[in-house]
Design a binder for these strands. Structure first.
Length: 437
RNA sequence: GGAGGGGUGGCAGAGUGGUUGAAUGCGGCGGUCUUGAAAACCGCUGUCCGACUUGUCGGACCGGGGGUUCGAAUCCCUCCCCCUCCGCCA
């Protein structure tokens, strides 16, 4: 959520920044409504102030009428005056009631509008509308093709480690079953990644996989992505589309004490997405599925450190690719490609030489104070200091099924077997190759 | 799922429907005293919103929402959460 104050201060700057996203935002309605809201608020508050003063006086008079020490005559006088004030207060109350209900309506509408506005792109984000405008900032390894490599769906089936038919039998399309060494490989990757990031200073977190609807609003996933998430029909449970939601909300409605920032978290969770928006795309293989696992990195940092921390976050995700020996590239997203919460993002893609495409395995973003404001997360620099909103950053480190794809396709041997990356072997119980069947 | 108990400031804990943003204690910050520290004493010590002379004024907040009333932390309804006991269960 943007600060209303920043829109008031410089509406044109906000308008121009949002225009770079190429989406419609109800900014004019917000500005107009805010003006009406403030003038109504002033009326309401001055009337409340008047009523409070009357109440105080009524209270004093009421006490006089029952006080034995007060003369009969004066009690009578006080009672009259009290009745008079009560009548005035009642009249005031009626006027207030209608103003207050107007005010409430405006507040609800204003909030509703404000929640639809995405974050402002950082000035350093390149212009552009689509994927083709993203800027590759560095690449390690080649986008190689050598003819004989199988795509993971074929390779996985031949090795007996990915079972699409049974996945579909259990749950339908876009579900899969991993077996034997495949299941083991994914588990090994998860465990290795958690250890990897923990050693680099992230604290491991195991959050719930279902959260309240409120968390989706606070995390910036509602209202925009309602179509893409699963939720319980009877109870207020929403399945995580990413651990990011849980991690954002870890500190919602909190004021963090001095010296608690920065906070670096790493969480492994399953993630659930409807993929309604992408219906028909990537239906083969395990690239785009309804349930997948992900190791997520998340940071809460003081605003002045977010740029530096974003670079480090990207570096940490890249380090995973490097350690696994996967060809990868990093690109800075253009303004039109930024997610709703993000002010700046880098995507990390690994090369999959079997299906011959770049796979997005991580998207690292700075959400500036946007999520923190939505979720009411604040911190103090010193004891008793003014609370401020921290910046929040998130990124995958990495998304699993796609990493599994990349490992299988990059490490397959001409004889049909698949080697296990060096760093993963200790987690595979000594297995260093999946033999061809 | 059944029965009962409870949600008040950073914590503990008061609070007959009317000068209660809220007693008191602890903690924290500042000061006096002291060579220094402790003790003692004194003062300060929440969050959000609005207005403008930017320092002050006003408003809101006692789990959430609604109601009664001239006026609600206090009364009523409803929801949520926590605790205890019983049942069930990985």
């Amino acid at each position: 959520m943007l600060a209303l104050q920043s829109i008031r201060d410089d509406p044109d700057a906000v308008r121009q920044a949002l225009a770079r996203r190429h989406t419609d935002v109800p900014l004019d309605e917000i500005i107009a409504l805010d003006g009406r809201w403030r003038s109504t608020l002033q009326q309401v508050e001055s009337q409340r102030s008047e009523r409070n003063a009357l109440s105080k006086e009524i209270g004093g008079l009421a006490r006089m009428t029952t006080d034995e020490r007060v003369a009969r005559r004066e009690q009578k006088h006080a009672a009259h005056r009290r009745d008079d004030l009560v009548a005035r207060s009642a009249f005031l109350g009626e006027k207030l009631e209608s103003l207050e209900s107007q005010l409430k309506e405006m507040e609800a509408r204003l909030r509703d509008l404000l929640l639809q506005v995405p974050n402002l792109p950082d000035p350093d984000v390149p212009d552009g509308e689509g994927e083709e405008d993203n800027v590759v900032v560095r690449q390690a390894g080649e986008e190689y093709r050598d003819g004989w490599r199988l795509a993971h769906w074929e390779l996985g089936e031949r090795l007996g480690i990915i079972d699409f038919e049974r996945g579909a039998k259990l749950s339908g399309s876009r579900f899969f079953v991993l077996k034997g060494a495949g299941a083991r490989l994914q588990r090994a990757l998860i465990q290795w990644m958690l250890d990897f990031h923990t050693e680099r200073g992230y604290q491991e977190v195991y959050p719930p996989a279902m959260v309240k609807e409120e968390c989706m609003w606070k995390g910036g996933w509602l209202p925009k992505f309602a179509e893409n998430m699963y939720h319980d029909a009877e109870e207020d449970y929403w399945w995580l589309p990413t651990a990011e939601v849980a991690l954002t909300n870890l500190h919602s409605d909190e004021i963090l004490e001095p010296d608690t920032l920065p906070l670096h978290y790493v969480a492994y969770t399953p993630c659930f997405r409807r993929e309604k928006v992408s219906a028909g795309r990537d239906v083969r293989g395990i690239k785009r599925v309804h349930q997948f696992d992900k190791v997520e990195l998340y940071k809460f940092v003081p605003p002045e450190r977010s740029a530096e921390e974003l670079d480090k976050l990207v570096a940490d995700a890249e380090a995973v690719c490097r350690a696994l020996g996967l060809p990868h590239r990093v690109s800075r997203l253009c303004a039109g490609e930024l997610g709703f919460n993000a002010a700046m993002s880098y995507d990390i893609e690994v090369w999959a030489p079997g299906c011959e495409e770049w796979l997005e395995v991580s998207s690292c973003s700075s959400c500036t104070d946007f999520q923190a404001r939505r979720a009411a997360i604040r911190f103090r620099r010193q004891k008793g200091g003014r609370p401020e909103h921290p910046h929040t950053l998130n990124g995958s480190g990495l998304a699993l099924p796609r990493t599994v794809i990349a490992v299988l396709e990059n490490y397959q041997q001409p004889d049909g077997s698949v080697a296990v990356p060096e760093v993963i072997r200790p987690y595979m119980g000594g297995v260093d190759v999946f033999p061809s069947q």
